[in-house]
Computed example of a mutant assay.
Amino acid sequence: MARLIDIENRPDEAIAAAVSALADGFPIGLPTETVYGLAADATNPQAITRIYETKGRPRFNPLICHVATLEMAERHAAFDPLSRRLAEAFWPGPLTLVLPRRPKSPIHDLASAGLDTIGLRCPRGFAGAVIAAFGRPLAAPSANTSGKISPTSAAHVAADLGEKIPLILDGGPAGVGVESTIVKVEGDRLRLLRPGGVAAEEIEAVAGRPLIRPAASGATIEAPGMLASHYAPGAAMRLDAAAVSPGEALIRFAGAAVAGEADAVAVFDLSPSGDLAEAAANLFDFMKKADATGATAIAVTAIPRTGLGEAINDRLARAAAPRP
């Protein structure tokens, strides 16, 4: 079983243990502000292979590489002026930039799934300290079995992958609760590859131009989180529900009453006050709890699509998509 270290009470021990495991080529459970990541040395092909094997992740699905600073990122990718402006505005934070990889970057091809671009993010908080101490970028997809609900606590990681990895750093509940927003600059166009922890409206305000939304299902996989079916619980998901049936669990928003909720197996409210940031932080945890009830299905009421609601609805749609 993975060793669990509380980073608040034992930060120095946590960093030392993380650097040791990473140097040995093993992935670890690493808390970030978005979700917990399965982090390993992005320059080590054996370490990256262990990420794919641990998650059961398709190798055509690229990984985000996490850096400690913009300066570290510049050693691995070429920044155009707009990408640099976005990095300066939102890093450290939940924004991933897809950029041309520098030919001499030691980030291994396995991390980028053979693409000539690389997704880079500078996380807030303790993850940045671990990366700085290690001195190399960390490839870090979410620390869960591929396609399942992303983890927002150390307990989630331990329940899913605890038998497969040597170390989990416990940083408490993830503050953002959904993965990073992924964008890519293409000439004078700015494309949104995945909505996430930075609202599209905030990015557009800094960029001074609109974000082009993701293409229809079936588009080329350019970044994580673009598979049609993803983030899925064991139970079927039913979205925009106006009523709940006996045997179903209910996930609602803003305290709105739902017909039949008295007969629901369980009721979870993402944010009784209607706060989308609170809803995003609770989303994956409540999906896991609803699934654990043994409900025949999980009914989810409509969530506003503005701000962080765009990311919430993206995750719900992929969770509810037909399973491969």
Rank of each mutant, 00 (worst) to 15 (best):
L97S: 00
L99C: 11
P100T: 15
R101L: 10
P103V: 05
P103A: 09
K104Q: 13
K104D: 11
P106F: 05
P106A: 03
P106C: 02
I107S: 03
I107A: 05
I107L: 14
I107K: 07
H108D: 15
H108M: 03
D109E: 14
D109M: 11
L110T: 07
L110C: 10
L110E: 09
A111Q: 04
S112F: 14
A113K: 11
A113T: 12
L115D: 00
L115H: 08
D116V: 05
D116M: 03
T117K: 02
G119K: 03
L120N: 02
L120S: 00
L120E: 06
L120P: 04
L120Q: 04
L120G: 06
C122H: 13
R124W: 09
G125C: 04
F126H: 13
A127T: 13
G128V: 00
G128S: 04
G128R: 00
A129W: 03
A129T: 09
A132C: 12
A133L: 02
F134Q: 11
F134R: 05
G135C: 01
G135M: 04
G135P: 05
P137A: 04
L138D: 06
L138I: 13
L138G: 12
A139S: 11
A139R: 09
A140R: 07
P141W: 09
P141L: 12
A143R: 02
A143L: 03
N144C: 09
N144L: 11
T145E: 10
S146C: 10
S146W: 13
K148W: 00
K148C: 07
K148A: 00
I149M: 08
I149E: 02
S150Y: 12
T152L: 03
S153G: 06
A154K: 15
A155H: 14
H156S: 07
H156V: 07
V157M: 15
V157P: 15
V157F: 13
A158C: 10
A158F: 14
G162S: 11
E163D: 15
K164F: 07
K164H: 14
K164W: 05
I165E: 06
I165F: 05
I165A: 08
P166R: 12
P166F: 10
L167E: 06
L167M: 04
I168T: 07
L169D: 01
D170W: 07
G171Y: 10
G172L: 10
P173T: 08
G175Y: 08
G175R: 15
G175E: 12
V176Q: 12
V176P: 06
G177H: 08
V178I: 15
V178F: 06
E179M: 08
S180L: 08
T181S: 07
T181A: 00
I182Y: 01
I182M: 02
V183G: 02
V183D: 01
K184I: 06
V185M: 01
V185R: 14
E186N: 05
E186S: 14
E186G: 03
E186L: 08
G187S: 04
D188E: 05
R189G: 01
R189M: 05
L190E: 02
L192G: 01
L192W: 04
L192N: 07
L192C: 13
R194W: 04
P195S: 03
P195F: 11
P195T: 07
G196E: 02
G196H: 10
V198K: 03
A199Q: 01
A200K: 03
A200Q: 03
